[in-house]
Every structure is written in C-alpha cells, then in structure tokens.
Amino acid sequence: MSSSPAPSPPPRPSLGRSAATGLFGGLLLGGLGLLAVGLGNRFMAVDCEGLTGPECKLLEDATREVGRAQALGGGALTALAASLFVLFRPRLPPEGPEDV
C-alpha cells in the first residue's frame, strides 16, 4: 500500500463571481434587447393611419430619434457587459517552463 497524498479539493465557487456573472449576463441580454428594439424603431415604417401629413412626419421623426438613442444605449450596454465579462473571467494559472 503506497501512501499517496490526498488530492486537493476542487476550488469552491465564489459567490461574488457568480453574482457578477449574473449581472453581466443581465446587462448583455438587456443591451441586446434594447439594441433590437432601437433598430426596429429606427428602420421600421411607422403606421400613420388617421394622421395628417405633419402629424405623421412628427411621429416618424420622433420614433426615428428615439430608436437611435435606444440603439446607441443598447450597443453601449452590450459592449460594457462583454468587456466586464472578459475582465472578470476566471484566469488560468500561469504555466511554468516545460521540461524538454
């Protein structure tokens, strides 16, 4: 019987890292959703049924500008979430020089 050292237990998951991953996932999904809605508002046709010409033009302009702001905000949230996820991801331990 050889007395080999007991294997080290696997590292415990960090509650803070798990919470941060959930937060980054929420930011990413929210940003993608806001980006999709913004692009839809920006490029989809507006229903002007029952409106006069100037009212329809005002509605189109307002919808297009709100869509632009939504798309910019959604893109920014998506980029922020992706960068924070990369920043806080678990790092692999550095490898030492290999013996040849």
Rank of each mutant, 00 (worst) to 15 (best):
S2R: 12
S3W: 03
S4G: 11
S4C: 08
P5Y: 10
A6R: 12
P7H: 13
P7E: 05
S8A: 15
S8C: 09
P9F: 03
P9S: 09
P9D: 04
P11Y: 07
R12K: 11
R12Q: 13
P13S: 12
P13V: 06
S14I: 07
L15T: 10
R17S: 09
S18E: 09
A20S: 14
T21H: 09
T21R: 15
T21F: 09
G22V: 05
G22R: 10
L23P: 00
L23Q: 02
L23T: 13
G25D: 02
G26N: 05
G26Y: 02
L27G: 13
L28R: 06
L28P: 01
L29K: 07
G30M: 10
G31T: 10
G31F: 05
L32F: 02
L32R: 01
G33D: 05
L35A: 08
A36I: 04
A36Y: 08
A36Q: 03
L39G: 00
L39A: 05
G40F: 15
G40W: 12
N41D: 11
R42F: 13
R42G: 02
F43E: 03
F43M: 00
F43I: 01
M44T: 12
M44R: 08
M44F: 11
M44P: 00
A45G: 06
V46G: 01
V46Y: 03
E49S: 15
E49Q: 15
G50N: 13
G50M: 15
L51W: 07
L51P: 06
T52V: 07
T52W: 04
G53F: 08
P54R: 13
E55R: 14
C56K: 03
K57P: 00
K57W: 01
K57L: 14
L58F: 09
L59F: 06
L59M: 15
L59E: 10
E60F: 00
D61R: 14
D61Y: 01
R64I: 00
R64W: 05
V66Y: 04
R68F: 08
R68K: 07
A69H: 10
A69C: 05
Q70H: 04
Q70I: 00
Q70D: 03
A71Y: 02
L72D: 06
L72W: 14
L72K: 04
G73A: 14
G74P: 00
G75L: 06
A76Q: 09
A76D: 01
L77F: 13
T78Q: 02
T78P: 02
L80G: 02
A81P: 05
A81L: 03
A81T: 05
L84W: 04
V86F: 14
L87M: 06
L87A: 13
L87H: 11
R89G: 01
P90Y: 04
R91K: 15
P93H: 06
P94W: 08
P94C: 02
E95A: 15
G96N: 07
G96A: 14
P97Y: 06
P97S: 13
P97L: 12
P97I: 08
E98D: 03
D99H: 12
V100H: 12
V100W: 08
V100S: 09
V100Y: 15
